[in-house]
Simulated assay, not measured.
Amino acid sequence: MANQILLLATFLAMTCSLVVAFEPAPLQDFCVADATSSVTRVNGLPCLDSKLATAEHFFFSGLHIPGNTSNPVGGKVTPVNVAQIPGLNTLGISLARIDYAPMGVIPPHTHPRATEILTVLKGKLNVGFVTSNPENKLISKVLKKGDVFVFPVGLVHYQQNLGSGTAISLSSLSSQNPGVNTIANVVFGSNPAISEDVLAKSFQVEQSVIRYLQAKF
C-alpha cells in the first residue's frame, strides 16, 4: 500500500512539474506558411525557411476595394487570413472586410476556431448570436458607425444592413484560419446531401420543402 501511495505521489509531482515547465510563448519570430511543402500538417501549415521570408509574405492589399454584393444575400466577405498573408501562420489572428447591400445580410454562420470582434465602419447593422442548447437565447443589438460587437467562438451569428445605403464592417478574428460554416449551406448544400427524411423530421416539415431548399444550394 505504501509503495502505491509513493508511486501516485511521484506521478503527481512529475505531472505538476511538466505543467509548470510548459512554455506557451513562440519559439521563433514567425512561421511563414509554406504551401508547397510536403511535410505532414498537424495544426497549421509547415514553416518556410525563415531566411527566404520577404515583406510580401506579411502583406495584403485589397481591403479598400468594395466587395461585390450582387448576390442573393446581398453581402460579401473579403477575408485576410493565412491564405492571403502566409506570415499569419501560427499567429492566431486574421481580418475580414464585410460589405452589405441595402438590407443585405451575412446569413447565420459559425466560426469553429475563432471569436470575432466586429467594428462598423459605415451604415447601421442589426447583429446577433444565439447561445447554445438548451437556452438558445438570441443576443442582438443595432449598431451604428464606430460601434463594436463580439461574437463568441463557435456560436451561430449573423449581420444585417438596416439602411437604404451600403454598409461596411471590419472583423478581427482570433485565428489565422477561423473557418466558416454557413448554416443553410451546411444543412441543405452538403455533398452528398443529407437524407430528406432526416431533415424533414428535424425541421418538422414535408420532404417536398426539403427538396425545394436543397435545390437552392
Rank of each mutant, 00 (worst) to 15 (best):
S175G: 06
R97I: 08
E206R: 08
S140K: 12
N161Y: 05
N136W: 09
P24D: 06
V148T: 14
H157V: 02
L118G: 00
F129Y: 15
A2M: 10
I168D: 00
T90W: 04
E56P: 00
K216R: 12
H64Q: 14
K76W: 10
A35L: 12
P178T: 07
L162K: 07
Y158T: 09
K144C: 02
T36I: 01
P152I: 05
T110S: 08
P107K: 07
N89L: 09
A83H: 14
G154N: 04
H109E: 01
S38A: 08
F22H: 13
T78M: 11
G74I: 04
G62H: 10
K51G: 00
G92I: 01
L138G: 04
F129D: 13
T90D: 05
L121P: 12
A114V: 11
L138H: 08
N89A: 11
G75N: 09
T110K: 05
T40K: 14
A33K: 07
F30Y: 15
P134K: 02
D99F: 02
S50K: 13
N181D: 10
L12R: 07
G179C: 11
F217R: 12
L199G: 10
A13E: 08
F151H: 10
L155N: 07
K51A: 15
A96L: 02
V77M: 07
K122I: 02
S37A: 14
S17P: 00
G163L: 01
K145I: 02
T110F: 00
F11V: 10
F151N: 12
G154F: 04
E116W: 04
M1A: 14
P102Q: 04
S202H: 08
L88S: 09
G128E: 09
I183M: 14
T110Y: 00
T40G: 01
I93Y: 07
R41T: 15
V32N: 03
L138C: 03
S94Q: 07
G104M: 03
T69A: 07
V186N: 12
F149N: 10
G123N: 03
G75H: 07
K216G: 00
N3I: 02
V19W: 03
V186A: 15
P107Q: 07
A167E: 02
E23A: 11
G179R: 10
H111Y: 04
L170M: 13
F22A: 12
V80Y: 04
K216W: 00
S37D: 06
V73Q: 13
S202V: 08
T69D: 06
S169P: 06
V180R: 14
H111R: 06
H109W: 01
G87I: 07
D29C: 06
I65S: 04
L125T: 08
A101W: 01
V39S: 11
S50L: 13
